[in-house]
Design a protein around this nucleic acid. Structure first.
Length: 476
DNA sequence: ATGTAC
């Protein structure tokens, strides 16, 4: 898009002043190149978000932003319930609580090297991946309820994982305020056999090596050293989250007139936070957050089992688990006053800075680990939250590379098989049930993750700690 | 993202 449409506030901050129905400015964090390459749709969508009732401070787009349903992916917006603020299903995204979890292995890359193929086989065999993938767990009414209210804590009670995992998970593994009675029978049915599965699209399980350290002190706190092997899991709430999103989107679109909300775009369907529909969505969404937390917990258990077949006796401890598709009630400073706000992060990672009360003791001094998944075959990053991020974007950062072209376009340009061979030549093993899926995820169909992360760092959204390179990728 | 469409 044309950078002339913006007022450049500083090196990385581009502002659109309020005009028309906008209540607040819209702000994109990028450099001139990322902004030029960004779809004009991001401009339209982020200015549309700025017109929604009760929005405070500004509507934000992260440097990885691209066109999404209603809100851009990479969008952040906070709403005040006392000022008629709203909640929007499209502002959270279909894959509710999609997120990334990273595990330490205690292994060095040299120890892994001779066993790469064996580990790839074991992981691919053990963790179900792909569209409609099913696991070995079958939920009945009672266990479904337990999962929707208990999240990773429920998974732990079922024997998946260790007590100490919980403190390294956002919300300590269990999202409060879940209301399973607002999760429809259809959503439950779709999830019955999908616990502990990766799903498809950009979801993956990746074995990575720490390739570069930017901040040695924080890296030490995060227990990351060059050459260390870690495992990252990127997935969400599968069929359940998608079904909840679909149903509430429809209900919110129908209710907009009743709540007298003028929508510049039908896809921005929303409901007042204080309305029955708004509250129902929040209850269902929180249940879906628990589903995603439980899902990543079970996949962690399966990963531990798979790794143990190749490296008996090793322990996989959690670095952290953080979601990037949520709406969370948080306290933030607005015009010198602490306010309780509902922060939508859609394709944006929560990034609490040092001293935040919700952080585990181990991270209190340095800030939250911010896990940024790269595209297939490219680097991922570990960042840490900063103090200044609270003022810049309600303590949020980018979530990944961000798509640069559509899935359809990517399948026209690349072949899955060829990509797998090319990456194999670079020492990266890809395992996937879908070669079409692999083509859709071609590295060049995404923005340059390093450029995106550099902007997040320079903008003060989060600070770079370590760069990870893929070794094995189980792709959904 | 998704039982890749209702």
């Amino acid at each position: 898009m044309d950078t002339g449409q913006f007022i450049q506030r500083d090196e990385t901050c581009w502002e659109i002043e309020p005009k028309g129905a906008m209540h607040v400015p819209a702000i994109i964090y990028a450099d001139a190149q990322l902004l030029q390459e960004m779809d004009q749709k991001v401009y339209e969508q982020i200015t549309n978000v700025a017109t929604l009732p009760g929005i405070v401070q500004a509507a934000y787009a992260m440097p990885d932003a691209h066109w999404g349903y209603g809100f851009p992916i990479g969008g952040v917006a906070a709403f005040d319930p006392d000022q008629g603020g709203i909640v929007s299903a499209g502002g959270v995204g279909f894959d509710i609580s999609c997120g990334v979890r990273t595990l330490h292995t205690g292994l060095n890359i040299d120890q892994l090297q001779p066993h790469k193929q064996a580990l790839a086989d074991a992981l691919y065999r053990t963790v179900p991946a792909g569209v409609g993938s099913r696991g070995k767990i079958h939920l009945n009414h009672k266990t479904m309820h337990g999962m929707l209210t208990g999240g990773a804590r429920w998974a732990l009670d079922q024997g998946f994982g260790e007590q100490r995992d919980l403190e390294r998970i956002e919300e300590h593994g269990c999202m409060a305020g879940a209301e399973p009675h607002y999760v429809s029978p259809r959503a439950r049915e779709r999830q019955q056999d999908e616990m502990g599965t990766l799903g498809s699209g950009n979801h993956y399980l990746e074995v990575q090596r720490v390739a570069e350290i930017f901040d040695p002190a924080v890296a030490k706190t995060f227990s990351l050293r060059v050459g260390d092997v870690v495992i990252s899991i990127h997935c969400g709430s599968r069929g359940l989250g998608h079904q909840i999103g679909t149903e509430f989107l429809k209900d919110m679109a129908m209710a907009a007139a009743q709540y007298q909300i003028a929508l510049p775009d039908r896809e921005l369907a929303c409901a007042p936070l204080n309305s029955p529909l708004g509250k129902q969505y929040l209850g269902a969404m929180r249940a879906a957050i628990n589903c995603a937390l439980a899902n990543r917990q079970i996949i962690t258990h399966l990963t531990r089992q798979a790794v143990a077949t190749v490296f008996p006796g090793i322990h996989l401890g959690l670095l952290y688990d953080v979601s990037h598709n949520t709406c969370k009630l948080e306290r933030h400073m607005i015009d010198g006053q602490k306010k309780s706000l509902f922060v939508h992060r859609k394709g944006a990672t929560r990034a609490f800075g040092p001293g935040h009360p919700d952080l585990p003791a181990a991270f209190k001094e340095v800030g939250q680990p911010v896990l940024i998944g790269g595209s297939m075959g490219t680097s991922s990053y570990v960042l840490c939250g900063t103090k200044e991020s609270e003022q810049r974007a309600f303590s949020s950062a980018c979530h990944g590379a961000g798509r640069a072209m559509s899935r359809t376009q990517a399948t026209k340009q690349w072949q899955g098989r060829t990509l797998v061979d090319q990456l194999a030549a670079k020492g990266i093993i890809i395992r996937s049930p879908s070669m079409r899926g692999v083509a859709e995820e071609a590295p060049l169909a995404y923005k340059d993750v390093s450029a995106v992360v550099d902007i997040a760092d320079r903008a003060g959204l989060a600070r770079k700690v370590a760069r990870l390179e893929p070794v094995i990728c189980i792709k959904g």
